[in-house]
């Protein structure tokens, strides 16, 4: 019996080893496949057009760093409605859009989650349940109606209006639930003590509770900012007169491909590297926040 058990154990160990080897090989192939296009992008961005034509995937023999300055100063622009929007305009629009959408979106979710989680009022349960339903309610094909209403309300091609109306259901979604649960974990003693000391509702919210939730909010803010920084769709669909950097890059690579059969590939890749850089830097800079365990109200989450 003991021998039989030992054999089964040995077989299991062998099977686990084979299994792990298969997964490791799969992971290695997958990781290489993720790296290769990005390495190719950086190599290509450092080549000149002639060496790219001769060898379009090898290591650059001489590194041409001027591709980066060339693409930023000469090629990254958008011509729309008779106007030419240069890099300065694209950068400003990118900043305003990322900052605006991230700030407005996070603030809305944060405030709504705060009142729903910490106060009893008429309609509280309804709002919470409605949020849960909306999360899995698959509404298909509202784009025509959205497009029509955005034109009627003057939101189409209006940056400020689009930002102000972007948060349509802040009581729904994963981040609402995260904030909701985070607020619930903050002991009521904190706010009750402030109330006894005469603090008003706004003061309690902004000076007592919100500072405790900053680490969680900062993570959402960084992710939201990065996602909006990379969002070319918002200009493609809704803000044709306010092009941002990703949209400029999108237009540039489309035009370069259509016009010259890939002749501008080194510049396109230099452009991609430049577009990618701010988000990578922001991610690295915010690593401490992103990887930290959130501490809310003295409780480690």
């Amino acid at each position: 019996m003991g021998l039989f058990k030992k054999r089964i154990q040995e077989q299991n160990t062998l099977f686990v080893r084979i299994w792990k080897t298969i997964v490791v090989v799969f992971l290695a192939i997958y990781c290489i496949s993720l790296l290769v296009p990005l390495i190719w992008m950086i190599f290509t961005s450092l080549k000149d057009e002639v060496s790219y034509t001769i060898d379009n995937f090898g290591f650059p023999k001489t590194m041409i760093f001027s591709n980066y300055s060339d693409v930023l100063t000469k090629y990254l622009y958008v011509e729309q409605n008779g106007f030419r929007y240069g890099l300065d305009v694209l950068f400003t629009n990118s900043l305003i859009l990322s900052f605006g959408f991230a700030t407005w979106g996070v603030a809305n979710i944060l405030f709504v989650a705060y009142v729903i989680s910490r106060y009893n009022f008429i309609g509280k349960k309804f709002l919470y349940n409605l949020g849960l339903i909306l999360m899995v309610l698959p509404i298909v094909g509202t784009l025509p109606a959205t497009f029509k209403m955005y034109r009627i309300f003057g939101i189409y091609d209006n940056m400020l209006m689009l930002i102000l109306t972007s948060s349509t259901a802040p009581f729904s979604g994963m981040w609402f639930l995260i904030f909701y649960n985070s607020f619930l974990t903050i002991p009521k003693d904190f706010t009750e003590a402030a109330e006894i000391d005469g603090a008003g509702y706004y003061r309690i919210m902004f000076q007592i509770v919100m500072p405790m939730i900053i680490p969680v909010a900062a993570v959402l803010y960084v992710l939201n900012f990065i996602s909006n920084w990379n969002n070319y769709g918002v200009c493609l669909y809704w803000l044709p007169s306010y092009p941002n950097i990703p949209y400029g890059m999108y237009v540039f690579q489309m035009g370069a491909t259509a016009g010259s059969g890939g002749a501008g590939m080194t510049l396109i890749m230099a452009g991609f590297t430049c577009v990618m850089l701010p988000t990578v830097l922001l991610y690295i800079a915010s690593q401490k926040i992103m990887n930290s365990n959130f501490v809310v109200g003295g409780i480690k989450m």
Binding site: P37, P246, Q253, T257, G262, M269
Partner: peptide, 17 residues
């Protein structure tokens, strides 16, 4: 890395390299 960059680099990589 932005999803936008990854998508477009993949496109160019498949077409060219």
């Amino acid at each position: 890395v932005s999803g936008f960059v990854l998508t477009l680099v993949f496109h160019k990589f498949v077409e060219n390299a």
